[in-house]
Design a protein around this nucleic acid. Structure first.
Lengths: 203, 203
DNA sequence: TTGACAAATAAACAGTGTTCAGTAATTTTG
DNA sequence: CAAAATTACTGAACACTGTTTATTTGTCAA
């Protein structure tokens, strides 16, 4: 009796279709710029159908946020193989920024968008993000242990580096770099990353 | 004939009432959480009346954004009196962060909120922001001239410092510091500012 | 074939930004 | 001072939003 399996598969396919359409539309017009009716129209179903698969609009958002967190983890996973903690940290930073630049919509979803954050902490997405943050902090700790920094305040060092990376990405993707010519923005961002890499030993 | 003057004054008072009510509501519920009808109700007028004073909802937003920029400038103006460029820069950074922490809603308006940014560049608000940014960059230039930094790349130094400050404030006000206990967040932010001050000479 | 179950729909509700014909108040004019 | 003109304001309407629900459609098992 493979019927229930097929049904389950079809349900999953439908959820996939909804998410793909939603992400595509969110990318173009932002969360608030997209209506359930828009998503329904995109997948050629009636608005009510969406609610058979997702409880409400925000759950679609959360599902996408989780996928974003997973993609980010996958983007960062390779650095775990780097032995030297300093090299690992530098590569982590570069890849963090790289992820933000390559997937502005997903980065936005994860770190900027105002959304019912109260709900999120108990969710897989939050755990995923926490794991990544812990990995980052452990790498900083390893660097501290090997005296790569002046300071030994691991938490503050990690947080300071994160602030820089996040500020860099979010100013870029929320278009607050208009005072710089468009073709110079990315270059400036890269120069800034390298500058922080060089001065990090003074942290 | 002081009638036209009185009319003009009354019109201005009405605009003020609308802005005050809007800011109060935006603070509580955010831009999207507030409707024109809410604002109208708050000032005890009908929704249509709002449109006699502001072309649409986003124009109310822009008016508030301009006031935010002006308030930010006023918050930063005192540092211009500081002679020593290094001291001036440090105090500028502290005050920038301080403004963001004290007025999260206004900071949000200025540097995070997604809004029709295309319109903004020709506006007074943008010019105000540009002037502040120029002042900041000139201060960095003065520090460069006096060899306060290793690097002489003024633009990248200024941008890097801005990234850190903005990242710090925006992670805080968009609630992405939940991995730290609430009573430690502000302390951590302050420690990070001081850490950047100390290591800035390595920039 | 029929009954049961699941899936999809259309319609409805209460809300949104915005427009506009109409009303009420005020000022200018005769 | 009364009538006309101007202005300020209203409230209903339009097209949209998220969400719920009664109803219809389609599939499968007996």
């Amino acid at each position: 009796m493979g019927i229930t399996e097929r049904k389950e598969r079809e349900k999953e396919e439908m959820r996939r279709r909804i998410l793909d359409a939603a992400l595509h539309l969110f990318r173009e017009r932002g969360y608030d710029g997209v209506s359930i009716r828009n998503i329904a129209e995109a997948i050629e179903y009636s608005p009510g159908t969406i609610y058979l698969y997702y409880k409400d609009k925000s759950e679609i958002f959360f599902a996408l946020q989780y996928e974003a967190a997973a993609l980010k983890r996958d983007h960062l996973i390779p650095v775990a193989a780097i032995e030297d903690p300093w090299e690992r940290l530098v590569e982590f930073g570069r890849r963090y920024v790289d992820f933000g630049m390559k997937h502005p919509d997903l980065y936005d979803l994860l770190f900027i968008t105002r959304s019912p954050m109260e709900y999120i902490e108990n969710q897989e997405c939050w755990q995923l993000g926490m794991a990544t943050h812990s990995f980052f902090q452990e790498t900083v700790q390893a660097c501290v242990d090997q005296r790569y920094f002046k300071s030994t305040d691991t938490e503050t060092i990690a947080y300071t580096l994160w602030c820089h990376a996040h500020g860099l990405v979010s100013l870029f993707i929320r278009e607050r770099m208009r005072m710089y010519p468009e073709d110079k923005r990315m270059e400036l961002a890269q120069k800034s990353v390298e500058m922080v890499v060089k001065m990090a030993e003074c942290l």
